[in-house]
Design a protein around this nucleic acid. Structure first.
Length: 620
DNA sequence: CCCCCCCC
């Protein structure tokens, strides 16, 4: 009976044998017989990234875990994340220790990653060294009888923590220079900085090079810089450096940034190398420094810019999990709206670990201080916070935060009305209709038709789509020519991707039945014009028809028409995404809420807002 | 030496 758990260290004997193979072959092949001899290989899929090589080869860059170590693999097959798989034959690439061409059988799917595995250090593997395994397991025994071929004479300190060699107490006596003064001509330096963010470990593998890396963001009184450690240094610095602690750093390469990738203000970045030395400074007074931008000024900043902001939380959405393209697992997301004394608010979205951390800390009317939020064009203008972001709720030692808190407490009763938001507020439960009107986003269908005719939507590529608000009802869901309704696609209930087969999902191998999702063209109509629009996915369809697609399409066409007539005689307030794709303008209905007529009536300048000027303003 | 940074 096979256990369904990964076997710690199970790939190590194979990697060692491959490494010590003296033949001229680039790879060592392990047959089922070899596996009987060297021990079963049962591992967990940590992650897979789909890659393609023209003309038509698809493969998956994969990280395997044995619960203690991570291994890089190239696989032709995709498994659900956290699957436990048994490998019956495979190859090991000799220079880097990659697992290739594995023949595998999926045993089951785990809920999460088992253990806290770290990337295997292939260079340091050696049949003489003690295995990192504290409890020797039967299958590791054959390792000891492997030929001890290589003479390796520089392992005099292989029992010590290798990162200890990086610590240099002498740095305590060095002169320290500000981070802001580092330049690409700097050859010798010592900085004292707080590690404000760290990781995660990333691995890469391509034709020219491969390895692992980790990035850190270092901050001192008036500057910040990104530092990256590769391979051996990645493992050492990952262990050595802790977020929130202050260190002195010397040695390493200072090079100009590529502004495409590094959005910090510093013109340079650091690479930690073999020469880099560090010293923990327990009593340092170096703190994270902030350079706050007013929220109203963010409208002028281009997407990607990283900034510091301080704001009062005026709206907070529950943590949610969303499916993101190219990512197999759902990602936690938490969205706030923050306001500062420029009387402007903006939506701030926290992702992944940042969302989980924030969730427990945040409540309305708290002041939040954010270091390194990234400007985005999502919903017009918004901010994203991820692994590199540092934030503090209700800090006591930041004057800007205390001042803002006082401003808010003094003025909160009067500022409600005057707030303008830089972000479209889809899904936000704000009471203020005025703030949405100030975004000038409500148009009529006639405006859409008119602007389309004038070619004014031609620049709205799918990435740069325009979002508008309309009030409309749905006048028709059937084709005018043949009365047919094709309104759904089948999606995988687990990974949500489109499914073409009933039996299982090609993307994640899930075997549950597919779920219908709305993908429906319809005629939208308001008081004086109509247009064709599409809805996609469950949320909006559910809002419009009052039920899930599975339920709707289980009904007869007569019943569907009844539902349509009943539901759709009501006016909805919709967000429409306008995008241009290969010459066609598409309208996608993104959100739909029953129209709040009372709120509409309160919009005194409604007539003005719906005029054609609105769209022209938006587009200019 | 990497290069993802997200959703409607």
């Amino acid at each position: 009976m096979t256990s369904n758990l990964p076997i710690a260290g199970c790939l190590i004997p194979y990697l060692i044998q491959a490494k010590e193979d003296t033949s001229a072959n680039a790879k060592v092949i392990f047959s089922p017989d070899d596996i009987n001899r060297l021990g079963s290989v049962i591992v967990q899929i940590k992650q897979q990234k789909e890659k393609s090589q023209p003309p038509n080869t698809k493969y998956f860059e994969t990280i395997l875990s044995d619960s203690k170590h991570l291994y890089q693999a190239v696989m032709m097959q995709q498994f659900p994340t956290f699957s436990i798989i048994k490998i019956s034959q495979f190859q090991v690439q000799k220079s880097k220790g990659y697992i290739l061409n594995a023949t595998c059988e999926q045993l089951n799917v785990g809920q999460s990653l088992i253990g806290s595995p770290v990337l295997i250090n292939f260079e340091a593997l050696d049949s003489k060294a003690k295995q990192p395994q504290p409890t020797p397991q039967p299958h590791t025994k054959p390792v000891l009888s492997l030929p001890k071929s290589q003479s390796n004479n520089n392992n005099n300190n292989n029992r010590q923590d290798p990162s200890a060699a990086l610590v240099d107490p002498g740095l305590a006596n060095r002169d320290v220079m500000p981070i802001s003064q580092l330049s690409s001509s700097t050859t010798d330096f010592c900085i004292e900085a707080i590690v404000r963010s760290k990781g995660p470990v990333r691995t890469w593998s391509k034709a020219t090079s491969s390895g692992s890396l980790m990035s850190f963001e270092l901050s001192d009184a008036n500057g910040e810089i990104k530092a990256t450690a590769f391979n051996e240094q990645q493992r050492q610095f990952e262990n050595l450096l802790e977020v929130g602690k202050v260190y002195r750093f010397s040695g390493g390469h200072v090079k100009p940034i590529d502004p495409k990738f590094n959005k910090l203000a510093h013109p340079c970045e650091l690479s930690f190398g073999t020469q880099t030395r560090v010293l923990l400074m327990e009593n340092s007074n170096v703190k994270i420094s902030y350079e706050f931008r007013r929220i109203s000024d963010i409208s002028e900043l281009t997407a990607g810019t990283k900034i510091d902001v301080v704001g009062v939380i005026i709206d907070s959405q529950d943590i949610a999990s969303v499916n993101i393209k190219n990512r197999s697992e759902p990602t936690p997301k938490k969205t706030l709206s923050i306001l500062d004394d420029s009387n402007t608010s903006i939506t701030v979205t926290f992702w992944g670990r940042a969302a989980q951390k924030l969730h427990s800390e945040t409540k309305k009317n708290d002041v939040i201080v954010i270091k390194s939020a990234q400007v985005s064009d999502f919903n017009q203008k918004s901010l994203n916070c991820g692994d590199g972001t540092v934030f503090e709720v209700e800090p006591t030692d930041i004057p800007e935060a205390s001042n803002l808190k006082m401003w808010y407490e003094k003025n909160s009763s009067v500022i409600e009305q005057g707030v303008s938001s830089l972000s479209l507020q889809s899904g936000m439960k704000t009471g203020s209709t005025l703030s949405t009107i100030s975004n000038l986003r409500r148009v009529t269908i006639n405006d859409l038709v008119d602007q389309k005719q004038k070619g004014n939507f031609a620049n709205q590529t799918p990435q740069k789509a325009l979002f508008l608000k309309i009030n409309c009802y749905i006048s028709r869901i059937r084709s005018t020519s043949n009365d047919k309704l094709v309104g759904y696609y089948n999606s995988c209930s687990k990974c949500k991707k489109s499914r073409t087969t009933e039996e299982y999902c090609e993307h994640c191998q899930d075997h549950q039945l597919p779920v219908k999702q709305y993908k429906m063209f319809m005629r939208i109509q308001d008081q004086d014009d109509s247009a064709s629009a599409e809805i996609l996915g469950e949320t909006v369809g559910h809002k419009l028809f009052g039920m899930k697609a599975d339920e709707f399409f289980a009904k007869s066409s007569a019943e569907q028409d009844d539902i349509t007539a009943e539901q759709l005689s009501r006016m909805f307030t919709c967000t429409v995404k306008v995008s241009e794709y290969s010459g066609n303008i598409r309208y996608n209905i993104i959100t739909a809420e029953p129209t709040d007529y009372a709120a509409l009536a309160r919009e005194e300048d409604y007539e003005l807002v719906v005029s054609r000027l609105v769209v022209q303003n938006l587009l200019s």
